[in-house]
């Protein structure tokens, strides 16, 4: 049976463009190494209808890239993304309007020279969700639903605060009547005082519209608040995926533990903390990741085996998936 939304073995590589110098060097017989970054490295995820999957990880681990592949903005180098069993993208073209995105930076994601009302109306008119004649009323309705005064529709983006802009960006995405909403750090660039308002708006709309969401964030407390399940990403790979409470109460992967331990707000008991320093060491370069488990160089539990071959993401108990040879026992929590 097909899941509602499936990301299957998705790989996304970035290659720096081949320079003239490289070409000449290659002609002359020099060995030009093709440096490519696997920003997303063999990721599989499934999402049930109406559920929210949180995606966490440090900056640069590939969350946005995965989000863009899932949203049909970037074509995957390998693998497929399916919504209701149909590919979101074929031949580098997005095939559906049912997946929409809210971007991280509302100062960059709105066209500075287009009235915000027109920006919200553009997609729905283009795809026949509303006629040009009814577009005005449609837009005003969406403005009201995201908590903006409808008279603001005639304004330009520079006349709004960050929080208001993000409401507009949410209205623009939802006016396309998506079934799946991808939120890439939607509150990361907002003032802390505004974040809660936007999150609450998001929760209200999600309930009213029965939305399925992929919620990307590096802020674990936000993800814990909004997600049904959480996936943890490290250097392009998913290292652990589990129901939200199980993941936070009993993280199985050493990286998840380190990540959770590094949240200042969460009070863990001291015994779990003394074992290791939260995330010591550097993230390996994505250009030349180590063989084996990418987290091994920083992992307090790493053995020889970890440095040789990478562990698969295996299902353990209660729908938890973890990629570790030595997952921390989670029996205590269950």
């Amino acid at each position: 049976m097909d899941a509602f939304f499936e990301v299957e073995n998705v790989v996304r590589e970035f290659r720096p463009p081949v320079t003239l110098g490289d070409k000449i060097a290659a002609r002359l017989g020099a060995k030009v190494e093709m440096r490519s970054v696997k920003a997303v490295n063999d990721v599989s995820l499934t999402l049930e209808k109406g559920k929210t999957l949180g995606l966490v990880g440090e900056s640069g681990c590939g969350k946005s890239t995965l989000g863009k592949v899932a949203a049909g903005i970037l074509a995957p180098t390998a693998g497929t993304v399916l919504l209701d069993g149909k590919p979101v993208m074929t031949d580098g073209r997005k095939q559906t309007t049912r997946v929409q995105t809210v971007f991280q930076d509302p100062f960059a994601s709105l066209d500075p020279r287009m009235k915000v009302g027109d920006a919200v109306a553009e997609g729905p008119i283009e795809h026949g969700l509303v006629t040009r004649a009814d577009a005005r009323a449609y837009v005003l309705d969406w403005f009201a639903r995201v908590g903006l005064d409808p008279s603001y529709a005639n304004r330009y983006p520079h006349q709004f605060s960050g929080g208001q802009r993000q409401r507009i960006a949410i209205a623009r995405a939802l006016a396309m009547q998506p079934d799946l909403l991808i939120c890439d750090e939607p509150v990361a660039s907002l003032d802390v005082s505004i974040q809660a308002q936007v999150i609450n708006l998001f929760l209200d709309l999600r309930r009213d519209l029965d939305l399925t969401c992929l919620f990307i964030s590096h802020d674990l407390s936000v993800v814990r608040h909004v997600s049904d399940r959480v996936a943890v990403m490290y250097l392009g790979r998913i290292v652990e995926e589990a129901p939200t409470e199980a993941l936070f109460e009993a993280p199985a992967h050493p990286y998840t533990r380190a990540l959770i331990a590094s949240i200042p707000k969460l009070v863990l008991n001291r015994e779990t903390l003394v074992e290791f320093d939260p995330i010591a060491g550097e993230i390996p370069s994505p250009l030349s990741p180590p063989p084996g488990c990418y987290f091994a160089p920083r992992c307090p539990l790493a053995a020889d085996r970890c440095r040789e071959t990478a562990p698969d993401l295996r299902t353990t108990e209660n729908g938890r998936r973890v990629a570790c040879y030595f997952p921390v026992s989670t029996r205590g929590a269950d």
């Binding site: 049909g72 903005i73 073209r93 997005k94 971007f103 709105l110 500075p112 283009e126």
Partner: peptide, 10 residues
């Protein structure tokens, strides 16, 4: 981003 957002509509 606004160009990407418009292309993503699609």
């Amino acid at each position: 981003d606004y160009v990407e957002a418009a292309l993503a509509t699609p």
